[in-house]
């Protein structure tokens, strides 16, 4: 799956599991996704190869906001579960202090 150089470890996680401020690259939309929903997510900009970051999370498991295609889009957990992103486990991510939750990028 991974197209990244072998030296950089990557892992694939659902979009919903991103922390606020974390970035990734969309690698696919889940295979069990209804084809019309899948198509809609792609037309909303959630398509393969696009860079994406999580901007914000509403309290109590509410919806989340992502920045994709220069736009802020709000999805519920159920939709965010359908989009899979590739995260680079770069030291940069571990070393950098986590951005404060809910405070955006």
């Amino acid at each position: 799956m991974s197209s990244a150089p072998a030296s950089v470890k990557t892992r694939v996680v659902p979009l919903s599991s991103l922390r606020c401020g974390q970035r990734g690259v969309i690698c696919r939309v889940a295979a069990d996704c209804d084809s019309s929903v899948c198509h809609r997510l792609q037309l909303l900009g959630f398509s393969e190869g696009r860079a994406i970051s999580k901007v914000r999370q509403a309290p109590l498991g509410g919806p989340m906001i992502f920045r994709v295609c220069d736009v802020q889009m709000c999805l519920r957990q159920a939709q965010a579960d359908l989009v899979l992103v590739e995260l680079a486990d770069e030291p940069e991510f571990a070393a950098r202090p986590h951005p404060l939750p809910f405070h955006g990028v």
Binding site: R40, I65, V71, M73, L75, A78, Q79
Partner: peptide
């Protein structure tokens, strides 16, 4: 059958 929820900010 739930419609997907999405909303632009």
């Amino acid at each position: 059958h739930l419609l997907p929820f999405y909303m632009e900010m």
